[in-house]
Design a protein around this nucleic acid. Structure first.
Length: 290
DNA sequence: TACTGATCCCGGTTGC
DNA sequence: TGCAACCGGGATCAG
């Protein structure tokens, strides 16, 4: 499951691999075309496969950046600029190759849904096993309001203040802290893995009401989230199931996670417990987290 | 108006 | 071995 550090890894390799290249043609998988014909929004959002291919043709990729868990392809065509916003969902991956056969893992290769053929002959391929990912072609961020509602980047100076002030609002004070920190309007890019890890590191119980946590502990929690996200970026992300970078490599952070997916607490040895919060499984140590 | 809950997008994994 | 239930990030929409 790609979260912010995994997306950061993708962008760091995609930016040099894709920038400056121009798209010659687009191929969309039969699977996606079939889904679109049934009026489903599989991967391609708010656009038909034909129109997507038509509009993308001739676009030059000027840069690739990250915003929260979204990948922004900055595009230019005939003096006009566009944004292709890509989310990896649960199992999305980008590959920069010269031939589809270079995508070594079959489970990704057989789920390649959009291929950008470049004028230089190379390919950028978007694979997505479960098709929860998305590609959305817009003019600018404001064309898709949810993008404007996202919290500041966690490494921005304003992020801690934004988080702390929202914690004291009526809307979030009554929610479990885990639900609050996983809300993209509160903190950008903190998904289940890193939320679980940061709560363990600060000894905070995931179900504890946000409003019942002191400002001091909330400040420490935010610092720990930033810390664990930074560590994960350095480690190349966590490959829990389906994360791969654009060269098909898994990350190394999963080996350094101390609570996510664990049966026993690494500090006290107690059996970990799991609870469902906002529809997602949370693991915690009943002795160390309060 | 603002918020909540349901629904949808899916195939790999798990458990019977 | 086969199959049904389960899982989940985010958008959207009904209420």
């Amino acid at each position: 499951m790609p979260e912010l550090p995994e997306v950061e890894g993708v962008v760091r390799s995609l930016a040099p691999a894709a920038s400056g290249r121009t798209i010659r043609d687009i191929a969309v998988s039969d699977t996606v075309i079939q889904s679109k014909s049934e009026a489903k929004e599989a991967i391609l959002k708010n656009i038909s496969a034909e129109e997507f291919a038509e509009r993308m043709r001739g676009m030059t990729i000027t840069d690739v950046t990250r915003r929260s868990k979204y990948i922004y392809f900055h595009l230019e065509k005939n003096g006009e600029t566009f944004l292709l916003v890509s989310h990896l969902g649960m199992s999305g991956a980008w590959f920069a190759v010269n031939d589809i056969d270079e995508v070594k893992e079959e489970k990704f290769r057989r789920h390649i849904h959009v291929i950008f053929g470049m004028e230089d002959g190379g390919l950028l391929a978007f694979a997505d096993i479960r098709r929860f990912g998305e590609l959305r072609l817009i003019g600018e961020e404001s064309d898709h309001p949810p993008l404007l509602a996202m919290a500041p980047e966690p490494f921005d100076e304003s992020a801690a203040g934004h988080f702390l002030s929202l914690c004291r609002t009526a809307k979030y004070a009554g929610k479990p802290i885990k639900e609050t920190i996983m809300d993209g309007k509160v903190i950008s890019g903190c998904g289940n893995i890193y939320a679980t890890e940061a709560l363990f590191r600060t000894g905070i119980h995931p179900v504890r009401k946000t409003g019942r946590i002191s400002m001091e502990r909330l400040e420490r929690l935010f610092a720990e989230i930033r810390q664990v996200l930074g560590e994960a970026i350095e480690a190349g992300g966590s490959s829990i199931s389906d994360y791969r970078n654009i060269n098909g490599e898994a990350g190394g952070m999963q080996n350094r996670l101390r609570m996510y997916g664990r049966k026993g607490c690494p500090d006290c040895g107690a059996e970990t417990k799991r609870v469902t919060i906002a529809g997602r499984t949370s693991v915690y140590c009943p002795k160390c987290q309060h």
